[in-house]
Design a binder for these strands. Structure first.
Lengths: 208, 208
DNA sequence: TGACGTAGTCGTACGGTGTACGCATAACCT
DNA sequence: AGGTTATGCGTACACCGTACGACTACGTCA
């Protein structure tokens, strides 16, 4: 009977993501989102429980973008790698949201679809339910952890430069490693690290 | 010539950690830290550049606690596991700081000591500098990622319960996996996952 | 002994934040 | 046309980080 709603979750997620991409995570506030949508601040609360839910909506969007259809004919490890790369690619479009990723992960329906696809690959590989739980959490921890590292302090970025120029007597291995690390591109780092983790999964499979 | 200093970094870190442990990360503010120390808010700024440095001091403390001496006689993979377990144990004493971990990691001298020890284990295993860079980042990403997962949404916690009671037609594998996951203790999850990652490292070593 | 210069202390203020409350209003149904 | 009812949102409050500058306690030197 009353007047029609003028917003929805999708519009809010879009506005919030636009702000974060343009001005960074620190610029995200209920006021800025409302302004982006051309409505009063408190109007948002008709559609969303609070800031937490806005953050959840953002994370949701990004995970949905990571939910690509996977080739059923591919090997299980190839499927896992493709899904993890898709997640990384989806995040790459919005690196500023990274601190929100793990905090809002569990409550994001978009993340569930991605998870289900990953579990499907592990299931066909022969992981039983309990084993699958550990494997999927390991993958998830690695991918989210490495993406956080990648953007918060990239191997090719200034924090590595800082490490490379520390006193060599105090931290000889850090200095030597950091120097070599500067030539490892983010793509290489991710591919090599993910291969290591997947190799570890395979080893745990044959050890059973 | 003037009056003596009444604070130092150690006292500030201790007060901040006490607040975070007692009342959670949200309760950490320049005002609360100052009150804990019995000092005016702005007095803190004589000793610290701002909130960021307070956060860095906390992270530093925790990493220092993770910097245990390692048995030189142990195998490299045992050394790696011991160091990672020490980090997890250090964090376990102050789970509320977890969101700060990765953000402040690179700027924390305490973290450097832990890193150096980890690199030393990898070095004696035969990883060259470039390979070591990837391996150490993989480990770091995994450990920090899994600890975040563990406390933000434990496998035995309510988010797993929520996943287990989702519509089984939409997410069959998530539901089945979540049911089994509830019987995996955090310790088991960490030990099993870490073993997988270390196995992956070993595989990458012999593949060279 | 007394005055001085300096550096530690911190009160005040400003521009931000999330959100509780409650009123005005626009749109639908009768 | 009138009544209902959810929407839109103005205001207010408590909190945040921190810039600024006045006050003050101290170690030193005259």
């Amino acid at each position: 009977m009353p007047r029609p709603r003028s917003l929805d979750h999708d519009a809010i997620a879009g506005a919030a993501l636009a702000i974060v991409d343009r001005d960074g995570l620190a610029a995200l506030s209920m006021r800025s989102v409302a302004a982006e949508l051309g409505v009063g601040t408190m109007s948002l609360y008709r559609y969303v429980a609070g800031r937490e839910e806005v953050e959840r909506l953002i994370v949701d969007r990004v995970f949905l973008a990571a939910h690509i259809p996977i080739a059923k004919t591919a090997s299980w490890d190839r499927q896992v790698i493709v899904l993890c790369e898709a997640l990384r690619a989806a995040i790459a479009g919005h690196p500023a949201i990274i601190p929100l990723l793990l905090v809002r992960f569990a409550a994001s329906p978009g993340a569930w679809h991605w998870l289900e696809a990953l579990l499907s690959a592990l299931s066909r590989a022969g992981f039983d339910a309990r084993h699958r739980a550990v494997a999927v959490r390991t993958l998830q921890a690695y991918v989210i952890g490495v993406v956080q590292s990648e953007y918060l302090n990239s191997l090719t970025g200034e924090s590595t430069v800082a490490l490379a120029s520390m006193p060599i007597d105090d931290f000889p291995l850090i200095v030597e490693t950091a120097r070599s690390a500067m030539s490892v591109s983010p793509d290489q780092e991710f591919a090599l690290g993910l291969t290591m983790v997947v190799d570890g999964l395979r080893a745990s499979l044959s050890a059973r």
